[in-house]
Design a protein around this nucleic acid. Structure first.
Lengths: 192, 192
DNA sequence: ACACTAAGCTGAGTCGGACTCACTTTATGG
DNA sequence: CCATAAAGTGAGTCCGACTCAGCTTAGTGT
């Protein structure tokens, strides 16, 4: 039994408010929002923010972790409705889309990557697992090369999404993703 | 005639020392080296650092810009000795290698990307141009797809190199790069 | 040689962020 | 409804990037 007795009601409320305020700020592109600002948005004092999150970075991590949780639920659903390689395509494009919608989210992701925090390692492992699910299904179906793991694809994707630059960002990201997919298929049907 | 009369000898020396100190610090992984530290390494006071570089960021940019200049000289040489697609492969792998050697350099690159500074835009344009050179040669030879520009490939590469994570980083980056190359070739020989 | 001066250098100090902690408020179990 | 531990508060600390008033010196004209 981990020594985590349930949070007091007001504490839980404040914690949630802080996460919501932070997410809101990040999605609005305010990726470098000051802690005071986030606390104010959540209607609490800075001290409260620091009661719930060790550092600013920890708050950012938590926001991202929640995001990852949601995204990682997708592959299973997609596989029920599409062929593996198409499911992979949808998932990758969804990730790109996600990063595009919230410019700040990509920054947050980057911010986490710049850290060696184990929290991020967990997130990465989770994502890699989700991708593995798709890749293995594709390998079994013979439509995707079998020798590439989720971590590798994740890295490529993370890189693509980590770069948010004005105008036409998303179009390019989509193209790169398509190329990546072609590369994964190419390995399965290698003709030369 | 731009109003830039040549720097005084000592000024030039100090500026170079600062750039060298910064590069050294970044290559050593001290990507977040404090300005005071960099100034001390260069044997000058902070004020001198700020005489030569508007902000810390500007210094980082300049270090990276020099690096880019060197790298962009490569494609022309490579094309003299290799087929276009092989030249592209060497160049991309070289970029990966470069980012791997200096962990800090990848961070610096990232730090620049997080900025909308025109200096970086120049660097990107230069890099994109270098890649275009290779891609167009490959398109002419029929070994690489013709509908992808240097900027797109650059973005993918930048993403890949922007992620430095402990252990096995390089191996993965190399694999991703190979996949990217396969994707570029696939488009040229598309069989389906 | 020598002095003159503008270019350059210095580093203590300012400023703006993240983070702390002594004190006050409040949810909740008995 | 009280006791009390959990939670909240926000003025204050700390630390890093950046400034600027005064000093030093390279380069130039004589």
């Amino acid at each position: 039994m981990p020594s985590t007795r349930p949070l007091r009601a007001d504490a839980r409320r404040n914690r949630d408010a802080l996460l919501a305020a932070a997410r809101e700020a990040f999605l609005a592109g305010e990726s470098d929002a000051h802690v005071d600002e986030i606390a104010k948005r959540a209607g609490v004092a800075v001290g409260t923010l620091y009661r719930h999150f060790e550092t600013r970075e920890a708050l950012v991590e938590e926001v991202y972790r929640q995001e990852v949780d949601q995204l990682c639920a997708l592959p299973a659903q997609l596989l029920e409705q599409h062929a593996p390689d198409e499911a992979l395509r949808y998932f990758l494009l969804r990730l790109v889309d996600h990063a595009a919608v919230g410019k700040g989210m990509a920054v947050a992701l980057e911010s986490i990557m710049a850290t060696d925090s184990p929290v991020f390692e967990d997130a990465r492992a989770q994502m890699a697992g989700a991708l593995d699910e798709l890749l293995q299904a594709g390998a079994a179906a013979g439509t995707l090369r079998a020798d590439i793991g989720g971590r590798t694809v994740l890295r490529a994707l993370g890189g693509i999404c980590g770069m948010r630059i004005a105008e036409g960002w998303k179009d390019e990201a989509v193209r790169i993703t398509e190329i990546l997919l072609d590369g994964l298929r190419y390995g399965a049907v290698r003709t030369s």
